[in-house]
Design a protein around this nucleic acid. Structure first.
Lengths: 348, 348
DNA sequence: TTGAATTGTGCAATCGATTGTCTAATTTTT
DNA sequence: AAAAATTAGACAATCGATTGCACAATTCAA
């Protein structure tokens, strides 16, 4: 009967605990714990002995045990649509950078832009008892109830980029309104008159804001706004093609398109090339995000730059401030600047 | 004195445990635990009652407690150089996809290509008691001792892409040798005679293999190999420029360059454009990796495609097989296929 | 010299879930 | 109907680190 126990026990061996250190020094676990945590109740002499013995035995603290006891994991969870999008991977780099500096770990979950997967992520992160969460909403998410898992339990939550009004939490976004405004005004300054806009899902603030910025610029300069030339799109590569076709084959085609992301702008450029439409002469194009490829397109793409890294850092800073009670869990929105990068696709 | 305790206690409230469920049903914690884990010793009736009460109370299991007890976290750790590189973010997507399907979580750490950071990642992942680790070595890592933290304790370890011979573990790589061979042979088939190669750090197998594949093709077709035209580079955008300059301003400039990554190939194209060197007429260029931008460069870049997603999936499959003792902890190397994508930069 | 204050450690409970062992209740076998 | 076997569930120990409290040893003041 004993065999089984012994065999299973073999799997992970060699794990030194504070009690092993205590035994080796003929002291107690509590003393070792306090010594390692630099508690003032322990003498320097003992601390030194403990630290040396810990090193000698190759002690590695078991975070699970510590977290269970302290109810604090020094870990923050991140939920993002997809890691392979440059904006998001930059944001994660920013998040990790800042979090690590402050002694926090990061667990990343991808929603793949699916609501169900997003709810899964919430469960996973909650089960891991993260101290706080940073999230950017999946495109397909319409119901936000799963986030109550955090809000109900006072687990700090910060949204970035893809935020929505329905959720009353802290947010970090870029100035999408200004971005939309700059893009449209830029096209207007180039003499474009019929400026179309391909927008994204309208339950997400950022697309609403880009659209509103565009509208503001149009109105400011008394350019006629044509409802037919404002399209809502999922902003995929394929749908971008379809939108391009729809706009450019209409009876009154635009002389400029402002796309709410660079992927769609890319589709437009490819479509125009295929159809022999010259860019920027016949059609000026502006995108949004400054994806890594935008600079190298031909013609290179005029776009609105937003720093994923900065957004990540700011979101983390805000989150950690809440976690550590430096600020109350208010409902704050931080807006980061954007800027227009002028390139060939609109240079006429 | 009591006030402080009370105040701090308030922070995270509302956490339902199995004991709360037990109390509500007038049963014991063990029964609840077994019921939730679908243990055969519990009757269907009880299981149903437990599940319903758990739902009613909003019970969420505390993974920390469970992990501590079972010494198994159902979590795998990933160490990668940088998440913002497309190949790596695709690999992570593959890793997550497969892991999630099998009920595992993923913790990601970035080494930023620094040895010290990599060692930090190892500590972090070990402290989190991950069940296994998937890693791709940082460029700057020369000493691999930190990985002993895992190997000494029989924690399964799988390397991908950036592997090295010094570490005797499981590996998943793409067929870099064949990729190098295909690239060089392709250039030869286009009639190029003076084919230079810009390689990467030689302590990493993948660059050695790409180089060897290139050499093999050269020898096979009796093309003269010129030592001056094989350069070792960190493969950054900046260094790519320097390499381009060095090669193209030499007395006997190459008529083709095979770069060990697309970033360097991009630098070459930009440099050539600047200097009025025509691609592919004066200089054919082939890269490696098929980065998202490569397709859209002008001229578009011929390159060797490798699927980060597939590598991630395979690495995870291998790791989970070891973790679950489906296969012994052998020293296996899985090689995934590559294929050449012919585009304009070599089309002459 | 005695009592008070300070300092350094140990004991034992705790976090929440899991699991070996024991007991009581029920069912099956003889 | 008694004995044996099966089933359902409770008890208590456990994982490893933390921490309130108790207590001994030392120092200091009166």
């Amino acid at each position: 009967m004993d065999f089984i126990t012994v065999t299973t026990r073999m799997k992970k061996e060699n794990n030194i605990t504070i009690h092993d250190i205590a035994k080796a020094l003929n002291t107690s676990g509590s003393t070792v714990s306090r010594a390692l945590n630099d508690n003032s109740r322990i003498s320097e002499k003992t601390k030194k002995a403990v630290r040396e013995m810990a090193k000698k035995l190759g002690y590695q603290p078991n975070a699970l045990a510590s977290n269970l006891r302290t109810n604090c994991t020094k870990t923050i969870g991140v939920i993002i649509p997809r890691i392979s999008r440059y904006f998001f991977s930059s944001a994660i780099t920013g998040i990790e950078e800042y979090a690590r500096e402050k002694g926090y770990n990061v667990i990343i979950c991808q929603s793949n832009d699916q609501e169900e997967r997003e709810a899964d992520c919430v469960q996973t992160l909650f089960a891991s008892r993260v101290d706080g969460v940073i999230s950017s909403i999946a495109l397909k998410t319409n119901n936000y109830d799963h986030y109550k898992t955090f809000t109900n339990r006072n687990i700090p939550l910060v949204f970035f980029d893809r935020v929505c009004d329905e959720l009353e939490t802290n947010k970090v976004v870029v100035d999408d309104f200004k971005g939309g405004f700059l893009a449209a005004e830029h096209l207007i300054s180039k003499g474009c008159k019929r400026i179309a806009h391909i927008s994204g899902p309208q339950h997400l603030n950022l697309y609403i804001n880009r659209l509103q910025g565009y509208l503001k610029a149009m109105r400011k300069h008394n350019i006629q706004i044509n409802e037919d030339q404002i399209i809502e799109s999922p902003l995929s590569r394929e749908d971008g093609m379809a939108c391009a076709k729809r706009l450019l084959e209409s009876s009154n085609p635009p002389d400029a398109i402002f796309a709410a992301n660079d992927t769609t702008a890319l589709s437009i450029i490819l479509y125009a090339k295929e159809k022999g439409i010259r860019i920027p002469e016949d059609l000026a194009v502006v995108g949004f995000s400054n994806e890594p490829f935008s600079e190298f397109l031909s013609p290179s793409l005029t776009t609105v730059e937003q720093s994923g890294f900065d957004v990540g850092v700011k979101a983390t800073e805000l989150l950690l401030n809440i976690i550590n009670n430096k600020i109350g869990n208010t409902q704050e929105t931080i807006v980061l600047p954007v800027n227009l990068i002028e390139r060939e696709s609109s240079n006429r």
